[in-house]
């Protein structure tokens, strides 16, 4: 057995699972597939190295339960969650449980591959450095109070129009603030924002 980092794909949908596998193969990323969380738990011992690409919603044990189970068993493996569109609550919970990332379906394959590659290359060293921490705090400092408000509400899983109503501004303005937040934090997705927020410890996450 090669001790080469490998991507473990856990998804109950045969087609999506197979497609992801084919995608990994096309990039020469070693991959292994599992049709359920239970299936993975049965076999994971053989693959200490690598990262886990995990569908959140599955019959039986779901993605989040698997992650918690791995934590309980002290198995440390970077996890990227795949969620349905707009399922922020689940994403936040996943990140709090230690997932390093989550991507929303339908996703940008390029983005996914980047994340997977990063994950694989860093998989032996998943601890963030002080340097990174300072960098992140500096980025958060640059946010205006309004941008910060928008970010907080985003983290609560609220949609633009809901945020607009709560802050009594137009949805268009919310979008502008949101774009600015993304830019200032060098975030490419909602998951980046969640990760930064978690990492900084400055935000209350439900």
């Amino acid at each position: 057995m090669k001790h080469e980092p490998m991507i473990h794909i856990v998804d109950d949908d045969d087609a999506v699972r197979d497609a992801l596998y084919v995608l990994m193969c096309s990039q020469d990323i070693p991959a292994q597939t599992y049709s359920s969380a239970e299936d993975f738990l049965d076999q994971h011992a053989q693959f200490k190295l690598g990262c886990l690409l995990l569908d959140v919603r599955m019959p039986g044990m779901n993605g989040l339960q698997l992650l918690k189970e791995l934590n309980k068993q002290n198995i440390s493996i970077p996890v990227i969650f795949i969620t349905g569109h707009g399922d922020v609550t689940m994403a936040v919970e996943a990140m709090k449980a230690g997932a390093i990332d989550f991507i929303e379906k339908p996703f940008d394959n390029e983005y996914l591959l980047n994340r997977v590659n990063n994950c694989l290359s860093e998989c032996l060293n998943i601890n963030h450095t002080n340097e990174q921490r300072q960098q992140i705090e500096a980025m958060i400092e640059t946010l205006t109070s309004r941008e910060r408000q928008v970010m907080e509400l985003l983290l609560e899983g609220k949609q633009n129009k809901v945020i607009a109503r709560e802050l009594d501004i137009s949805p268009r303005t919310v979008e502008l603030h949101r774009a600015k937040v993304m830019k200032k934090l060098d975030a490419h997705s909602l998951s980046d924002i969640i990760r930064i927020a978690l990492f900084s410890g400055q935000f209350k996450l439900s």
Binding site: D18, L23, C25, P106, N109
Partner: peptide, 12 residues
């Protein structure tokens, strides 16, 4: 689900 699969397959 099928659309995601199609998208991933064709990209691959």
């Amino acid at each position: 689900q099928p659309l995601a699969a199609i998208s991933i397959y064709s990209d691959a």
